[in-house]
Simulated scan of single mutants.
Amino acid sequence: MGWPVLRARFGERLEESTLDKLDVAVAFAVERHGEQRRPAGEPYVEHLLEALEVLVDAIGVRDADTLRAAVLHDVVEDTDTTIDEVRARFGERVAELVGWVTKSEDRQLYLQSLRNAPDAALAVKLADRLSNVQRLRTHPRPEKRASYYRETVATIVPLAAGRGWFEEWYRDWQEEHADLSSPRE
């Protein structure tokens, strides 16, 4: 599903000014991520739109900055874009939220720091990981499936605790995918 279809669907729930801001963020993300693909081969932008869709449809986020951060959440981590560019184009709050969900060189420290993240940044992170783990079974490397499952259970599932829909979704996902905890071909 591309942005035009998603935009039309969101038209009844989001203000036109929010949709206009999302138009700019999506265009920027598409430009910056270019031809990047996910491990199973689908265009990378689908992941960004899926995270956005989770925030709007599942938990009812309407805040333009949070939604733009969802679309831009990997632009600093996975492209040549800097956080300063995000700040200049989209403002301080969007840059702050993107900064919270941009992995640092020390992955464990980064994941631990999320415990102190603002609610909006946690919502973006939980939507991001939700999109990633839905396709975990299609990842080509069994050892990566296992390690990512274990990391999600250890660090992301606790962040979902007390967060309504996210808590329930991650609990169900964890139960349905427990077999991924160890690598298998």
Rank of each mutant, 00 (worst) to 15 (best):
L55T: 09
T66N: 02
R87Q: 10
G60F: 05
A70C: 06
T102V: 02
E96A: 12
V86E: 07
V75C: 11
Q108E: 15
G91P: 08
D65H: 13
R62C: 02
V61E: 15
R62H: 10
L49G: 09
A88G: 02
V76Y: 00
D65V: 08
L49S: 03
G60K: 14
Q108L: 15
E77C: 05
A88Y: 01
I59M: 09
L52N: 06
L48E: 13
D65N: 14
V94Y: 03
A88F: 00
A51H: 01
H73F: 01
A95F: 04
D74H: 13
A95V: 01
T66A: 12
D57K: 11
R89L: 10
A95R: 03
I83V: 11
H73A: 05
V101M: 12
T82W: 05
R87G: 00
V86I: 15
L72E: 09
I83N: 13
H73G: 08
D106L: 07
E105R: 15
D65R: 14
G99Q: 06
T82K: 12
E85K: 09
E85P: 08
A69E: 08
V56Y: 06
R62F: 03
L72T: 07
I59L: 13
V71M: 12
D84E: 15
G91T: 08
T82E: 03
V98P: 08
G91D: 02
I83Q: 13
L55D: 05
Q108S: 12
E46Y: 09
R68Q: 15
E53P: 00
E46M: 02
Q108H: 07
R89E: 15
D57N: 12
D78M: 14
R93M: 00
T81H: 07
V101C: 07
H47N: 10
A51F: 03
A51Q: 07
A58Q: 14
E96C: 03
S104F: 00
V71W: 07
I83R: 15
D57I: 01
R89W: 01
W100T: 01
R93F: 02
